[in-house]
Simulated assay, not measured.
Amino acid sequence: MIYPSFTCYTQADIDQLPDLHPMLLYLYPKEPLTIQPSATDHVFCTGCHSRFEWIRDLCVQCVQTHTDFTFVRTGSELIVNGRLYHIPADQQIPQARKAGIDYHPLDPLFERLSRSAFRSRFHLGSKETAYIQAKGIETIQHHAYDLIGRRLAPAEPEHDGKQTPMRGHPVFIAQHATGTCCRSCLYKWHHIAKGSALSAAQQDYVIAVLMEWIYRELKKKQER
């Protein structure tokens, strides 16, 4: 299938996009952009004469809506933390890869997790489901950010390997189900190395994995 593609530089360009799905977006952000990833199949971003925080924000928007995001190349000039970098042509793609903010569908991950007897035994019970319904999914996501930030994100989490209870909160169950319960499991299942604090983008990724697992669990219960 050939998807329609559009190139955008400003918010005005995005606001004028036709209401098509799926589509491919090629972004060269000249200002902070708010996209609608739900109407997009894949976002490709190039950062020439742009700011890295704008690009990272686009990635976060895609993570939150489970949309493919690829940081294609930095371009010849990129502002990072207020500093302008001049990047040679042969380093623009490698530097984009080094940023580590690409985001892709989670189906392959969940397929691997399903083949683990230990991971696949975890499910939301009636108590956890009722808790989610009472609190709302946005509150659960806020809880997830707090728990991951305190228990998993530090370079050397306290009691690493034992910091995530087996029950007590839907996020705890989701962590064990997705291999995000400790830094060793995070490395094994998600290839995020130990010994360094998780970046904001890495924490966003972990949250996306957890929330996707919760969404899938709730969907299964609705289909029964």
Score class of each variant (00 low, 15 high):
L27P: 03
A12S: 13
Q64N: 13
R73L: 08
C181R: 04
H66C: 06
C181F: 04
D204I: 02
A134W: 03
I207P: 02
C182T: 07
F118R: 15
G179R: 01
I132G: 02
D15F: 12
A117Q: 13
A201R: 00
R167W: 10
P32S: 10
I214M: 09
Y26M: 10
Q222K: 08
G75N: 09
G47I: 03
G179E: 00
L198V: 13
A130L: 10
F172C: 04
L210A: 05
K98I: 10
P37R: 11
H49N: 14
Q95E: 09
K127V: 08
L20H: 14
H49E: 12
K194F: 14
L186M: 11
T40K: 04
L152A: 11
S126W: 07
D146S: 15
A197M: 05
R216F: 03
P94A: 06
T7L: 01
L152C: 09
I79P: 02
Q141F: 05
P105D: 12
R121Q: 12
P165A: 08
A99M: 08
D204Y: 13
R73A: 14
G195A: 15
I14A: 06
C181K: 06
D102P: 00
P22F: 00
P37C: 14
S50C: 06
H104R: 12
R56I: 08
H49F: 08
P108L: 11
D13V: 10
A134P: 00
D160F: 07
Y28V: 01
I35F: 13
W54N: 06
L27T: 06
